[in-house]
């Protein structure tokens, strides 16, 4: 398991090294480019800030009112086999909405501890799955397609595999 940790730790520095080192070799104006991109980053965060306010408050209300506990207790007999209860709200919302699932994931991580089993698992699931329904809708409607055949089935299977593999790997990490 220390190898997994090691690769995770060196991944970011290596990616930065390759990109910056290569830019230096090609003699591009590397810092100017960086500034331009960083400015775009500022815009991205500013743009999603209103969405986050709306969703964090809504998710916080769902949790503090007890609705999430209620739903979890109803569905958990079925999902108990392959994932912990705490993860359930994330697994349900993840395919539907990116920003809502981000709010839920943050909520779960905060409630269970960022370096706890559940906290790490929520982060891994969040990072290894996508907003499937949204992606399918945007891509299909952009070319005015109505019949999507088996694309939903194939993508959801991939998502479920992603969740199951996440559970297995994170369990191994904590053993």
């Amino acid at each position: 398991m220390s190898l997994i940790n090691y690769i995770s730790v060196v991944a970011m520095p290596i990616v930065i090294f390759i990109i910056i080192g290569n830019a230096l070799r090609e003699k591009v104006a590397v810092f100017d480019l960086f500034l331009k991109g960083a400015k775009d980053g500022l815009e991205i965060v500013l743009k999603i800030f209103p969405t986050l306010i709306g969703l964090f408050v809504a998710i916080g209300m769902l949790r503090s009112s007890g609705v999430i506990d209620f739903i979890t207790s109803v569905v958990s007999p079925i999902t108990n086999f392959f994932m912990p209860n705490e993860i359930l709200p994330l697994a349900i919302l993840r395919p539907i909405s990116g920003s809502a699932s981000m709010a839920v994931a943050t909520d779960i991580i905060k409630m269970n501890g960022v370096d706890s089993f559940i906290g790490v698992l929520a982060a891994v699931i969040m990072g290894s799955t996508e907003t499937t329904l949204y992606t399918i809708a945007v891509y299909s409607s952009s070319v005015k397609i109505k019949k999507t055949r088996f694309v939903l089935f194939a993508s959801l299977i991939a998502d479920i595999i992603g969740v199951i593999v996440s559970v297995i790997i994170v369990s191994k990490m904590f053993n």
């Binding site: 930065i16 960086f34 331009k36 991109g37 960083a38 775009d40 980053g41």
Partner: peptide
């Protein structure tokens, strides 16, 4: 911002 910058490079 950091990653947008690096990926722009």
């Amino acid at each position: 911002c950091l990653w947008s910058g690096i990926m722009e490079v």
